Amino acid sequence: MRRTSSLADRLFWPILVGGAASLWFGPKALGVAGLVALVLVLHRLGRGGRFRRRVRAIARHHRETLALRRRQESYVDPYGNEILDGWLRERSYFADRTVLPRLEAEGYGDLIAARYDEILDIVEAASLSVVLPDEDDAAPTDGIAYERFCATLLERAGWDARTTRAAGDQGADVVAERDGVRLVVQCKRYAKPVGNGAVQEVVAARSYWNADHAAVVSNAGFTRAARKLAAATDVLLLHHDALPDIET
């Protein structure tokens, strides 16, 4: 992390040089040094505002993606509570991987620890600043209908997608092909995050269907265990919103 000089560091040389120069050139030199010191103080006092503006600019640049990720990583439980655990992890990930490195590179590293909560608040505000199109209310609650819904979204993206028979699907609800690439998908319309059992099943389905890629699609996010297993087995974890833009 780049070290940012303190205000005392910045003032030391103007005052020292100005004091020495005043011995030779009189009070005018000391006045110039004082003016330089004043400019440095004012610049330093405005640093917090510049820090906030920089964070806002970074978050604003990604606000559409943040808004979408907030929706994808949140869900309402059977009791009507909005569960934001997945979004809070995503928000911290964005702050740590996108915002903080830029702040450090621009000389604000010394402010990060004390203002981390402020960074998160700014990211949160950016995620809420975008009015997304209404979430597709056509997404059915019935499991079989949800599988067909996911297949339709893949077809819109140019895939030749079909649902499998409930019996003998070996963990694949949808099989899709495009440009010689085969994708197997397990679809979970849940009221809670999907666990790693779904990941295990779609890994088996990838082998059974001789597919190139595997994905689990849900409306409700994924547990930490599911994410860990998916990363280890190269399985995509997706909200159904992401299906039209899927790339493999």
Rank of each mutant, 00 (worst) to 15 (best):
M1I: 00
M1C: 00
R2E: 09
S6T: 04
L7W: 03
A8T: 15
R10Q: 14
F12E: 00
L16Y: 07
L16C: 05
G18V: 04
S22F: 02
G26Y: 07
A33W: 06
A33N: 08
V39W: 15
L40P: 12
L40N: 09
L40H: 10
V41H: 12
V41E: 09
R44Y: 15
L45E: 14
G49E: 15
G49V: 12
V55D: 08
R56Q: 10
A57P: 05
E64Q: 02
T65N: 09
R70P: 01
R71Q: 08
Y75L: 11
Y75M: 07
D77G: 07
Y79E: 11
E82G: 07
E82V: 15
I83E: 11
I83Q: 06
W87M: 01
E90Q: 14
S92V: 12
Y93S: 13
F94I: 11
D96A: 12
V99C: 10
P101N: 11
L103S: 10
E106A: 06
G109M: 00
L111M: 14
L111C: 03
Y116K: 10
D121R: 11
A125Q: 02
A126F: 01
S129G: 05
V130N: 11
V131D: 13
V131Q: 14
L132V: 06
D134S: 07
E135Q: 03
D136T: 10
D137F: 13
A139M: 09
D142M: 01
I144M: 13
E147I: 00
A151L: 11
E155K: 12
E155P: 11
R156I: 10
G158V: 13
W159Q: 13
D160P: 06
A161E: 11
A167C: 13
D169C: 03
Q170C: 15
V174Y: 04
V175F: 04
E177I: 05
E177N: 06
D179Y: 01
D179E: 01
L183I: 05
Q186T: 04
R189Y: 04
R189I: 01
Y190D: 02
V194T: 02
G195S: 08
N196I: 00
N196E: 02
G197D: 03
A198M: 07
V199K: 01
V199W: 00
Q200K: 14
E201L: 11
S207W: 14
D212K: 15
A215T: 01
V216N: 05
V216P: 09
V217F: 14
S218A: 09
N219W: 02
F222W: 09
R224N: 00
A225Y: 13
A226I: 03
A230H: 10
D234N: 13
L236A: 08
L238E: 07
H239W: 03
L243S: 04
L243G: 00
L243F: 00
I246P: 08
E247F: 00
